[in-house]
Design a protein around this nucleic acid. Structure first.
Length: 256
DNA sequence: ATGGTGGTTCTACCA
């Protein structure tokens, strides 16, 4: 089962890019983030025609997450426990092929001297608590998405540039480490130890042609999922297409 | 030090 994650930065504007990619790469499951549309505006029919079921948690203008799947989707959950007042659409989780799979859009957290940074750190704590609870089910779990966390210095071009950014601040990296220490595996690093492997290139400053990116999109796998991992790659090709998202897909293959 | 780009929405906010 091929599971991919892709922050598409507007699912409606990016629809041609997404349809082209899924037709060529044939992921069984695609986790989308930054839909930037309400649930009823999601282009469900277009994905159905391409062979995918959809579970969607949208929101006006910002955020929004979805799961597309060639296999049946059951037991959909759209709230990350721990803050009933949180109205941002950043989490959707479902069962597919006996895997528990989530599409995550973790808060950016900048600027760090505003309420946005504590919101990010608190959201991380809620995710960690829920990830721990999911381990107790002993089923394969894949928590994929835009984590807005650069795990290590080698995952950006120049760590000095990111030193005081919410994506690389020590507290942010510690949250990622907590997930790892719980027993979750970053699928990409099982297969690739090279420096400067990126999943995001800013629209500004010629980041893409200069290859000044960061690796912030991750497939985090429970032990039962990690044991089934056969490969994981970042497909940078979509970032070079016309009208590209600033993120590119990360895809892992799992024995079912 | 600033501005550089792109998305939604309506004028600022977000990344």
């Amino acid at each position: 089962m091929k599971i991919a994650t892709w922050n598409v930065n507007s699912v409606r504007l990016r629809l041609p890019n997404i349809l082209q990619w899924i037709t060529a790469q044939q992921p069984d499951v695609l986790l989308l983030q930054e839909l930037k549309c309400q649930t009823d505006q999601f282009p469900e029919m277009e994905f159905k025609s391409a062979g995918y079921e959809c579970a969607v948690f949208g929101q006006k203008a910002w955020n929004g997450v979805a799961i597309l799947s060639k296999f049946p989707i059951t037991d959909v959950m759209t709230t990350l426990p721990g803050d009933a007042a949180d109205e941002q659409s950043r989490y959707i989780e479902a069962t597919i092929n006996r895997f528990r799979i989530a599409s995550i859009y973790l808060p950016n957290g900048n600027p760090v001297d505003t309420e946005k940074y504590p919101y990010k750190l608190n959201w991380c704590d809620r995710l960690i608590a829920h990830a721990r609870a999911l381990l107790a089910t002993n089923q394969p779990v894949v928590l994929g998405g835009d984590y807005n966390i650069i795990p290590e210095a080698r995952d950006c071009f120049d760590p000095a540039v990111w030193k005081n950014d919410a994506l690389f601040m020590l507290q942010s990296r510690q949250k990622y480490r907590q997930l790892v220490n719980l027993g979750y595996t970053d699928a990409f690093r099982v297969f690739n130890q090279q420096d400067h492997q990126y999943s995001f290139w800013d629209y500004q400053g010629g980041s893409w042609p200069r290859n000044l990116g960061i690796r912030i999109d991750h497939l985090m796998c429970s032990p039962q999922a990690a044991d089934r991992l056969e490969s994981c790659i970042i497909d940078s090709a979509p970032r070079g297409e016309e009208k590209a998202s600033d993120h590119t897909p990360v895809m892992g293959s799992f024995r079912v």
